[in-house]
């Protein structure tokens, strides 16, 4: 019956991938983190999407608030108001966050972030410390708010049998129309034709390098848009950034640090971009950009080429 396919998984391989954490704390690595450390880590790595106080930016998830709203018309489901197990928050932050830089956090940073999320939900005070020994015991407010699927009893047992075929109701009146809300996306025909001939300056660009840069840009996409229809997100639109003076994107609220450097004449030429993207926080102390930097020289050259290729 056994086909003898595959090979035995080595302990270090299992350790590298088997990181899930269960409600009873199984899977947690040793470590701890406090609220104040968490506040710093959160500001650095999470706030660009989730807000400084875990209140959420744009459409990105709110992590705090929403108490007693679950029975309302528009419930706000956060870690504090909805999530049943704290292990879930630790597990998700550890394996899938920060968005665009997943699996980069140390265990102590994860404990600290989760402690801060509890604090932002008013569930602990600012001296609280979360650790592998205390996490499983921590009870979230909505822990008892879930029931196992009961559709078979509550719905299926009722909605069976031969349905009515004729004269099933007296009147049929329209009670709601989609046209009233008018939120359906505009129907577009064929996708637009490829762009016309590229601008002059692009002729000098190496297409392979631009393509490589587009891949590197995936690291930036969570916060930055570029090209046709790009909009400011937690980072400004980057169309035409190369060669332009800093701080010029309309409608974007820049950090104080960037505004000051812009006033002093910072231009995003290739050299400055290179230095900034290699070590953002060294080049610009106080930048809002929560990105640790591109380590590889090849990536830096590629991203610069790509950004150059998407001109105004």
């Amino acid at each position: 019956e056994n086909l003898g396919l595959g090979r035995v998984a080595l302990p270090e391989e299992i350790a590298a991938w088997d990181k899930d954490v269960s409600p009873d704390g199984t899977g947690l690595p040793p470590g701890s983190g406090d609220v104040l450390t968490g506040e710093e880590v959160f500001a650095d790595k999470c706030a660009s999407c989730h807000g400084d106080f875990a209140e959420g930016v744009d459409n990105w998830p709110k992590l705090a608030g929403g108490w007693d709203t679950l029975a309302d018309d528009d419930p706000l489901k956060t870690v504090g108001s909805y999530w049943p197990h704290l292990s879930t928050a630790w597990d998700y932050v550890n394996r899938s966050m920060p968005f665009g830089d997943a699996q980069s956090l140390e265990p102590d940073e994860v404990y600290a972030i989760v402690a801060y999320i509890l604090y932002s939900n008013d569930l602990v005070d600012d001296e609280f410390v979360l650790s592998d020994e205390t996490l499983a015991e921590f009870e979230l407010p909505n822990a008892d708010g879930f029931i196992v699927d009961d559709r078979l009893e509550t719905e299926h047992s009722k909605w069976v049998g031969e349905p009515c075929m004729t004269d099933c109701k007296d009147a049929v009146e329209v009670t709601m129309r989609a046209m009233v809300l008018d939120v359906t996306p505009q129907e577009e025909g064929a996708p637009e034709e490829a762009q016309a001939a590229p601008a002059e300056q692009e002729a000098a660009l190496d297409p392979a390098l631009v393509e490589a840069g587009e891949k590197v840009f995936k690291k930036c996409k969570a916060c930055h848009q570029i090209g046709d229809g790009a909009k400011n997100r937690s980072g400004p639109v980057l169309t035409g950034i190369v060669g332009s003076p800093a701080g010029r994107v309309e409608g974007f609220k820049y950090s104080k640090a960037l505004t000051e450097m812009a006033e002093n004449g910072l231009v995003w030429d290739a050299d400055n971009l290179h230095a900034f993207l290699a070590k953002p926080k060294t080049f610009m102390k106080g930048t809002k950009m929560s990105f640790s930097g591109l380590k590889k020289e090849d990536d830096l050259a590629a991203i610069t080429a790509y950004l150059k290729s998407v001109a105004n």
Binding site: L70, A71, P75, G145, F146, I147, V148, D149, D150, R151
Partner: peptide, 9 residues
């Protein structure tokens, strides 16, 4: 305000 979980089918 209570929620069903494991609603797979």
């Amino acid at each position: 305000g209570t929620s069903r979980k494991w609603t797979w089918e």
